[in-house]
């Protein structure tokens, strides 16, 4: 989607400019803006609409071929069906693009706030002073809130599921554990042949990410929907480490195999 960046919206540029280089007055203005949903919507809606327009306008060029093949098969049958097929695709594209933009913006803000102070505690106080109770990045994150959709604890070699937590009813979880391990093994083993061993750490598809944290005999895979910032990501990573330390180091391997449901409950407690 790099062609979008070239036409990056002027307004978005300005907003970034103010956020990154602004004076106290500017920042106060932004705080007011951010805390006022109506005003914020006024600013952001046109940007979003414009991006939607850009995607629409360029749709033919970029996605013409794929659409053509869908059209051939479905147009004969019913035009309504065609609409049904295309609109989720369009929706996903737009959602992903906007998600990316927000992530970039968020991380810039994170950085500039970090630059302003070197202590974590001071940072949060200043953040609160500047932006009210809600820190700016949290505010923006709300547009596309990252949510943990599923968590899997999987034995590293065999791919056998040791425990899992999921918000929705997915297909057989044992199978997911096996296939994830197979994909992971394939990437690490077949593609990476001859090189130093490196672990697969993330799989990305559409608006979802699977973050993988490897331990010696098992690994944790977290399925996330929405946009996750670098700092949220490292927080999650810390949480997984803490979980492993507190819940998994005290039970033996054989216990792990027989206590799948117990571990699943713990996963839910920690990651819900």
């Amino acid at each position: 989607m790099s062609f979008m960046y070239d036409k990056e919206d002027k307004q978005l540029e300005q907003l970034k400019d103010i956020l990154l280089n602004g004076t106290q007055q500017d920042i106060d203005d932004i705080r007011i803006l951010l805390n006022n949903e109506e005003k914020l919507a006024k600013k952001i809606d046109p940007i979003l609409e414009k991006h939607v327009e850009v995607i629409r306008a360029d749709f033919d060029n970029t996605y013409g071929k794929e659409v053509e093949s869908i059209v051939v098969h479905t147009l004969e049958n019913s035009p309504e069906l065609l609409l049904k097929v295309i609109s989720p695709m369009l929706g996903r594209l737009i959602k992903k693009y906007i998600g990316q933009q927000f992530q970039i913006l968020r991380e810039s803000i994170d950085q500039s706030v970090k630059k302003a102070t070197s202590f974590g505690s001071i940072k949060s106080t200043i953040k609160e002073k500047l932006f009210g109770v809600k820190a700016s990045d949290e505010y923006i994150a709300e547009f596309d809130k990252a949510q943990i959709a599923e968590v899997y604890l999987i034995e590293r070699n065999s791919g056998i599921l040791m425990g899992s937590f999921s918000r929705q009813n997915t297909i057989d979880r044992d199978m997911i554990g096996g296939m994830l391990t197979a994909i992971k093994g394939f990437v690490e083993d077949a593609i990476n042949k001859g090189n130093e061993s490196e672990d697969l750490e993330m799989i990305e598809y559409g608006n979802h990410k699977i973050l993988i944290q490897n331990f010696y005999t098992y690994y944790v895979a977290v399925v996330i929907s929405g946009t996750i910032s670098a700092s949220n990501r490292s927080e999650l990573s810390d949480k997984i480490l803490e979980f492993a330390d507190k819940e998994l180091s005290i039970i033996s391997q054989s216990e792990i195999n027989s206590k799948t449901s117990h571990i699943s409950d713990k996963l839910e407690d920690w990651f819900k």
Binding site: E155, R156, N157, S158, G159, I160, D174, G177, G178, T181, A182, K184, G185, F186, E188, D189, A190
Partner: peptide, 23 residues
């Protein structure tokens, strides 16, 4: 948990990770 592995004329062509942990 059954793993159906792509056939190879000789087994050393198969990614080792597919075998590991198999009982």
């Amino acid at each position: 948990l059954l793993w159906d592995i792509a056939g190879e004329v000789s087994q050393d062509k198969v990614p080792v990770s597919y075998f590991l942990g198999a009982s």
